[in-house]
């Protein structure tokens, strides 16, 4: 009796945990099929494919989504490049201000987003740049970099410096060494950092709200629409983003595992 309980305890606990995590997502997906009347899509009123067949009905949604995707790709791309270089420098060289850099990098992660966003707005106003896509981009790059550095650096622990020396010994100059040896070795970390940054940027609301000016990202659109009633197309696109994200993650993990098997790491 006790043993049965014990045996069931963990799966039950896990089941509730997962349910708790996924219930909101399931609700979002479910309500993309809701045949609701009026402005508010909050009570289940019957099944329809209407919203899925007409995802572009509310023009602002694909527009805002487009902005968000471009923003996420560009900001995460730039932050990943800068983050890679910082991570390389931090693990490679002992330079003046190295430990200071370590601490400073932690700041954007530790600072409450509200504080970060409002300070940035203050800065942009003081500089007279106004707010728009560029300020939005700068703000996103800023808060993604720290995460990018942290992710890539975790990957570089245990990186054998002799590998780079061996490449140089075999006539590879600095650039070839980076291209042929360093980068292929840290690529999974770089890619993971890019995905993380992309996700962080895509669903950022607080910092964007301060620094976007009149630009509307997807989260900003949803926030604005909430007062008027959120159209079910938001659920449709939310579902698409969810599915795409999960697929990419699974592909990434699969590729990782294959790579490890190929290298005989497992």
């Amino acid at each position: 009796m006790m043993r049965t309980i014990k045996r069931l305890l963990l799966p039950t606990y896990l089941g509730f945990g997962l349910l708790y995590l996924f219930l909101p997502v399931l609700v979002v997906i479910l309500f993309s099929f809701n045949d609701y009347q009026g402005r508010f899509n909050v009570r289940w009123q019957g099944f329809t494919l209407e919203h899925w067949l007409d995802p572009f009905r509310v023009e602002e949604i694909p527009q805002a989504l487009g902005v968000s995707i471009v923003l996420a790709a560009v900001s995460s791309g730039i932050a990943t490049i800068i983050g890679t270089l910082i991570a390389l420098a931090l693990t490679r060289y002992r330079f003046k201000g190295r430990s200071a850099t370590n601490v400073l990098l932690f700041f954007p992660m530790a600072t409450p987003e509200v504080v970060l966003g409002s300070s940035l707005l203050g800065l942009f106003v003081a500089m007279g740049t106004g707010a728009g896509f560029l300020t939005l981009l700068l703000a996103h790059i800023l808060f993604i970099i720290s995460y990018a550095v942290a992710t890539i650096r975790a990957r570089m622990v245990g990186f054998d410096r002799h590998l780079e020396e061996a490449a140089m010994d075999l006539y590879a100059n600095e650039w070839d060494t980076f291209r042929k040896v360093t980068l292929p070795m840290i690529l999974p970390g770089v890619f993971a950092a890019f995905l993380l940054g992309f996700a962080l940027s895509l669903d950022d609301f607080v910092v964007s709200n301060f620094t976007a000016g009149t630009i509307q990202t997807y989260p900003l659109y949803v926030w604005g629409a909430a007062r008027r009633g959120i159209p079910a197309q938001v659920n449709v696109w939310g579902t698409v983003i969810f599915v795409v994200t999960v697929t990419v993650m699974l592909l990434f993990l699969g590729a990782q595992r294959r790579r490890q098997q190929r290298l005989g790491l497992t």
Binding site: L163, A166, M168, D169, L170, P184, M185
Partner: peptide, 29 residues
Amino acid sequence: KPYRRLVNTVFQSYALFPHLTVFENVAFG
């Protein structure tokens, strides 16, 4: 620089490139 010297090194840890095959490791130089 090391890549301008006509000497080659066998490292204590071997430092073989884990992402390359034996052939590509040897062909690297």
